[in-house]
Nucleic acid binder design. Structure first.
Lengths: 339, 339
DNA sequence: CATAAAAATGTATCCGGATACATATAAGAT
DNA sequence: ATCTTATATGTATCCGGATACATTTTTATG
């Protein structure tokens, strides 16, 4: 493999000129530049970017910590990241962590060993751990989708509380009074915020909060299916179920139909995320649309700006949501409304 | 940031000893090793792996070219890759290419510039292009999922022809005679092979191949929905539709139900892939299960073996499939069977 | 205790671009 | 033609580990 010096020799110039001809062509005369370029061509020279990166101290890599790529929402987020990173000449090092803190910490350490310049974390956990204790130095990190609230790093999030409130209000307007919630993992701030939005709406409508209508889930189809089974068997069955993501909603719909009940006639079901399958469920799913790709591109953009020193104070970006009403939610039956 | 030499100085040893204490501890006496380790601790030294990689000429990165991550099958494949790469101390550079050859070629060039050691391509296209013309040097590449047949690189694939044949036979056994196919993009070998398997089964059953029962798609929910619309309106409507992936099958089922027809009573629908949503569609989808994660882990494993010189001849790995019969396929109606 | 063999450590150099600084050449002003 | 700038090019060095080879120390053997 040919290098700098061989090209210089063949072109009859110095290595500095070769380097300049490639990096800052305007500093090199046309004649010289052509000599260099033809030498490069003749030798089939390719600059060793590992060397360049090593010298510059910038790897050009961004570590992305994602609980699981096998999730349509995260997949779209990653897609958005990839596109933005590519535009900005950065690469994405994808790390599936299954939400495992040790694994997240391990990958975050790639920054310490100069294998990556920064980290995007899609979960509410600081993989740099105690290191941040002092809170002094800005961590090369952006927190997106599910964010920590006490963090000093840039974040990209949805106003989950407002979104959940909007969805709950939609259900209330349809006359529902017993609205169940299938939650995400209990440690998640995302779940906490969505639940807060749900309670906001209930309170405003003067409806008492009923703990028994909350059911835990883990964002998978199966957990939605299982949770719906529990809710159906309640003494006072809910007339609507608000699921914290679409997968659980689709699982819940199946379970409800298996019980011989109808959606939305007997029970309305709402989701969150608006994944590609949402309009194709039966009935099509009422949900909250999130700009998933934008989460990714914004996170990457913020991280690069941070790394390149264009950011002073950690911004907290809030992306917009949209209530998408489809056929899985409908009016509560008359008896219910009158209760 | 502290380096090699500072550690050496503080520990009162040479840089070579520091390096050895970390890389080959058995070559360093316990006493010296402890001195080095405590110096490392005191200085909070982290070896610059960019430097090490640069020197060794191995980046430890694998480029993964995927048409789109926002696809549940590919997402699982990538998940499998990530896990295997992590085990073997390699990193995955994820590249969403949208099946764009220029983009694929661009990313593949990362190998030339030493940013990556090898490439895993999940599509039937050689991103190293004409370079392979001579077919001399082994390309640092593994082709998985949708593979080229004339390639000299290792491949990981399913016996798509046998799988499609198995599915078609299943439909034939249920009495179907007019079996439509919603295909993938026409340039895909995957589509070609699955179609061949379909024809094998028809031929064996003595049923004439009918071109009008083939409908193009692009593996999306919408394309399945649209294609089903066309098939429903045929003069002689098919009694079963074999879709080349589950997304299209789910799209097709929705379209069929929208026409007031029932699945499987009026039309049976089968998919391919067995994505997480398959058992949750209504009715649950009959499909071909593929070991998606294994595609990923096997591809990574092969590529690393290739890069590290443990492979002589390019292996062609065939992974097993499984016919998963659920409720979306059922017996053809009597009239149909008697026709 | 001498000597050979093994183990431990050190010295010097390499990897391949990037670039500060020095030098040389060309263009412009008077 | 002379001197000042601007432009172009070259020289030398750095980045931070890895390691071939040299040297020193320790252990084993007769």
């Amino acid at each position: 493999m040919s290098n700098n010096r061989e090209v210089a020799k063949l072109a009859g110039v110095s290595v500095a000129t070769v380097s300049r001809a490639l990096q800052k062509p305007e500093l090199v005369s046309l004649k010289t530049r052509n000599k260099v370029l033809s030498a490069i061509k003749k030798l089939d020279y390719r600059p060793n970017l590992m060397a360049a990166k090593f010298r510059s101290g910038k790897s050009g890599n961004l570590v992305v910590l994602v609980p699981t790529v096998a999730n349509l929402f995260f997949a779209r987020v990653i897609s958005g990241m990839q596109e933005e990173a590519h535009k900005r000449s950065y690469s994405i090092l994808l790390c599936n962590t299954f939400g495992n803190p040790e694994m997240e910490e391990g990958y975050a350490k790639m920054v310490h060993t100069f294998q990556a310049d920064g980290v995007i974390q899609l979960r509410a956990y600081n993989p740099f751990g105690a290191e941040d204790a002092g809170g002094n130095a800005a961590l090369p990190m952006v927190n997106a989708c599910e964010v920590l609230d006490d963090t000093t790093v840039p974040t990209v999030a949805l106003d989950n509380r407002a979104a959940a409130r909007a969805m709950t209000e939609h259900l209330l307007q349809l006359g529902h009074r017993r609205i169940a919630v299938i939650k995400g993992p209990k440690s998640s701030p995302l779940t906490r915020d969505r639940l807060a939005g749900y309670r906001d709406a209930l309170e405003e409508a003067g409806i008492a909060f009923d703990e028994s209508l909350l059911c835990p889930g883990d964002f998978t189809l199966h957990s939605g299916h299982k949770a719906a089974g529990v809710l159906i068997d309640l003494n006072e069955r809910p007339t609507a179920i608000f699921c914290e993501n679409d997968e659980m909603a689709i699982g819940a719909i199946q379970r409800i139909k298996q019980s011989g009940l109808r959606v939305p006639d007997d029970i309305s079901v709402a989701g969150f995320d608006d994944i590609a399958f949402a309009p194709f469920s039966d009935p099509p799913l009422t949900t909250i649309a999130q700009p998933a790709e934008e989460f990714g591109s914004t996170a990457v953009s913020l991280l690069i700006d941070l790394l390149e020193g264009r950011i002073k104070k950690a911004p907290k970006v809030i992306l917009p949501f949209e209530l998408v009403v489809r056929a899985s939610t409908g009016p509560a039956s008359i008896e219910e409304t009158l209760q």
